[in-house]
Design a protein around this nucleic acid. Structure first.
Length: 106
DNA sequence: AAGGTGACTAACA
DNA sequence: ATGTTAGCCACCT
């Protein structure tokens, strides 16, 4: 099972209404320093694997996509549609991790 | 197959 | 406290 497959596996486990950070997923997938790679995988694989890519954000709770095909505003509305409170501050979207971050149970 | 890259982070200045 | 920098490492070309 490759790293990307594990990433996909865990991203799919993020419950509706919650979010996780790239680092969090990377750690679950067994490579804590590969947060940025998680982003690459989501960028490339989200469509073909039907992933809830919008539930993965950076460690500060900000939406950090720079991808034109999947802009931050799209991600924000997807999250809002799931019940996640997305706030906007100076053109940046952010989520209160204290309330919305996914805590995976062991 | 090798090297560049980035939807990240944590550590500095 | 905020802005910048330098590691990171699996993915894609």
């Amino acid at each position: 099972m490759s790293f990307s497959e594990r990433v996909i596996h865990f991203v799919r486990q993020i419950p509706k209404g919650k979010v996780a950070s790239y680092g969090q997923i990377a750690a679950l997938a067994g490579s804590p320093r590969s947060a940025i790679t998680v982003g690459q995988i989501l960028h490339n694989q989200s469509e073909k694997y039907h992933l809830p890519w919008q539930r993965v954000i950076n460690s500060r709770g900000y939406i950090s996509t720079t991808c034109l095909e999947h802009p931050a505003e799209m991600q924000a509305s997807l999250l809002e549609a799931e019940g996640v409170k997305v706030k906007k501050h100076d053109g940046l979207y952010w989520i209160d991790l204290k309330n919305c971050q996914w805590q995976k149970e062991e």
